[in-house]
Design a protein around this nucleic acid. Sequence first.
RNA 1: GCGGGCGUGGCGGAACCGGUAGACGCAGCGGACUUAAAAUCCGCUUUCCCAACGGAAGUGCGGGUUCGAGUCCCGCCGCCCGCACCA
Length: 855
Amino acid sequence: MPRFDHQAAEARWQALWDERQSFAADDNSDKPKAYVLEMFPYPSGRIHVGHVRNYTMGDVVARTRRAQGFEVLHPMGWDAFGMPAENAAMEKGVHPGGWTRANIVAMRTQLKRLGFALDWSRELATCEPDYYGQEQALFLDLLAAGLVYRKESAVNWDPVDMTVLANEQVIDGRGWRSGALVERRKLSQWFLKITDFAEDLLDGLKGLDHWPEKVRLMQENWIGKSTGLKFTFRLSPSPLAGEGDSPQASGVRGGFDVFTTRPDTLFGASFAAIAADHPLARQCAEGNPALAEFVAQCQAGGTAAADIETQEKLGFDTGLSVVHPLDPNIRLAVFVANFVLMDYGTGALFGCPAHDQRDLEFARKYQLPVLRVVAAECEEDAPIGDEAYTGPGRMVHSRWLDGMTAEDARAAVIARAQAEGWGEAVTQYRLRDWGVSRQRYWGTPIPIIHCEICGVVPVPKKHLPVILPEDVTFDIPGNPLDRHPTWKHVDCPQCGKPARRETDTLDTFTNSSWYFIRFASAPDDRPFDPAVAAKWLPVGQYIGGVEHAILHLLYSRFWTRALQRIGMLDVAEPFAGLFTQGMVTHETYSRPQGEGLPPLWFAPDEIERSGSGATLKTDGAAVEVGRVIKMSKSKKNVVNPDATVARYGADAVRWFVLSDSPPERDLVWSEAGIDGAWRFVQRVWRLAEDNAAASEGVPEPKLDRAVHRTIAAVTSDIDRLQFNKAIARLYELVATLERSAAGPSRRAGVISCLQLVAPMAPHLAEEAWALLGQTGLICDAAWPVADPALLVDDEVTIAVQVNGKLKGDFTAAKGSDKAALEAAALALPGVLRTLDGAAPKKIIVVPDRLVNIVA
RNA sequence: GCGGGCGUGGCGGAACCGGUAGACGCAGCGGACUUAAAAUCCGCUUUCCCAACGGAAGUGCGGGUUCGAGUCCCGCCGCCCGCACCA
């Protein structure tokens, strides 16, 4: 039997789409616009199945929107700067640029083989000067607008590789590559003022109702707004000897500021605590070696998540004390404490052990008083045990606050502080400014020149782009830009004297913070044309991995708002709709290598799978079949789709990745699953062959109704990105069509069916469309619309229950009256048997649905 | 610790607003076609009792609301994700 020849069909239709520029987006179209975007890939080597799933989902949306009459922008590009390229350079001795560009070529070919409806004319790669040069221009615009600044900041420095490490690259305090103990170094770095937008970014989340609630919550927590009181603790008669010479010394000498969300508990205060790197702590440490050692110990302490939980609350009494702001007769000892963070609030706090768990642990350790000031009902003098009370209640032991609710007391204390001038209501955010300097080669050069005379000088825009030199080597550790013979030496644009280029590059997240704007508009002479960009933006449907829920999505929102603030683009939120898809997972295969050694991992294509076990193809010996986990290079459980696409065809692969699992959940990759998808492709093809010719006969209303119900359901499923449900309905429709008699209804049904299948399996659909003699391409055909008249059934099945348990059903005309339904239900044999002559107490009738007899 | 999500057959998963639980797919079993195989088609497939007709139980566990609960409420248990000493 002739089969659907996927290889020929794929080649034919891909060439034709390309030739006709079927998926090129027209900026000047009168049609309504739809911008469909999947997160662009990092060119790491080869496409994996996770990419296929991501891009297939976007493709279904794009193709459907196009059929529905939208002008669709569905572009593709490459997030091409980043560390893996440098790692490859060091490991394999290749150039990051060459490696990256070769990967792009390979991955582009792979993507094209899958038949995605992409506008390739808008392809971009962030590592090319025509992209990063425009990014440099935007950086300078933000700098001019005061949204970029420079400050000293600590980094993880690997002294062997002479490079800065990301937190994830520091393992047990050592560099992941060199194994050297990592140092904390202070470097002058560039920051973007994302904190200026904290309130806007938080507020904007409310309007993003096509975003997953989960992602909105994650961003909300990340921004971490809290409101409370900031007030000044005056140091009680200062025992501090000598004049501090630090710039903050004046602030320190008189006292220090603390922030609290619980000003109501101020009368329960029993100590004050400051961070180890608080200016006052450093000042005190100067004359106190023991304290200096404690401070050093705190700073060395791992910030690794696991440590923190178990870490004991430790403090060191500075000997200083501060005056309680509500009663000058109360003095509180000032501790340096390891649990106080310098980069949140003011780096100092007052401790109220009764109502804060950490403060309680601290107070117990150092025998400080624990005074309850908030009482829930009837427990005014109940002692505080091991748990601080953080719930609501009324004030006790708090003088003029007594009897107020804690909530009222908060307001009262803030009002008093403001009236008396020792404190004010403030809003705090956890969000920090975004440090964008990377001491790395393969990134966007920061367009800044350092001049001994003029200081920091922006590169004049007419000198952009600052091209990243490619004649560099990686044989010695460190940033090759630093040791490049000529690149960093440049004349100061202001005074003309010899100066030095900034050798840091921008964080790769800056590249992905505006690429969606560049896709919409990419003129040669500026980053984008605001009018053209505004036609497309915001992205209507953005699809990508949930791992970007915070950083990329927050940075992009910030970048867009920043451009709006400086008047470059009138868009506040870049992504109107967001969908986060699940991962593709696969089981793992390994063999132990003996004691102390990690197991040896094998790739799926090295394995012969049999029943519950597996053997290695090369030696036939058994390997361990491990858990199903996210595909990762290190566990070698990555499936490269090339072989599968060649064997089963792009359509079967696309169909499979959409079929079983709901898109937001993880998908387990299996060969068996794709067999089923392949069978479906063949089934649809046979169905098309059987109905290739026009057919005589009478219409069949039942079949028409089934077809139109499927049209309505699949359309709504795709709208809600529930591809697995759409696919289940298409299986049902195909089965129904196969079973029905030949005739005009069946042929019409097959045609509609092909259109519904087209977004998922476009090559098959085109080939079958042509076979049926339809004009034009199916990708240009208008989406089928369900006839509302055909969605209504004239007959309904009525379920019959006795005491809520199903006893049978019957068919009735739609809209039958209650009495008729009741009578029919009571006559059912199952009902008669169950009632056994007893009279029903009550009968509940839900029209067109069910009858429940209460006996 | 805080925040969020999830828990349904052998497996992936359906079930709109509280109204026939298990759609659809995978795997499995049986059958048809075939010299045979592949391919394809048809049937069965939650569990228990029964020869059968039929019946009972059943959506992590325990309660509750309701004529009726996978769905709503209360209390547990388990798993997953995010953040993590945030004052």
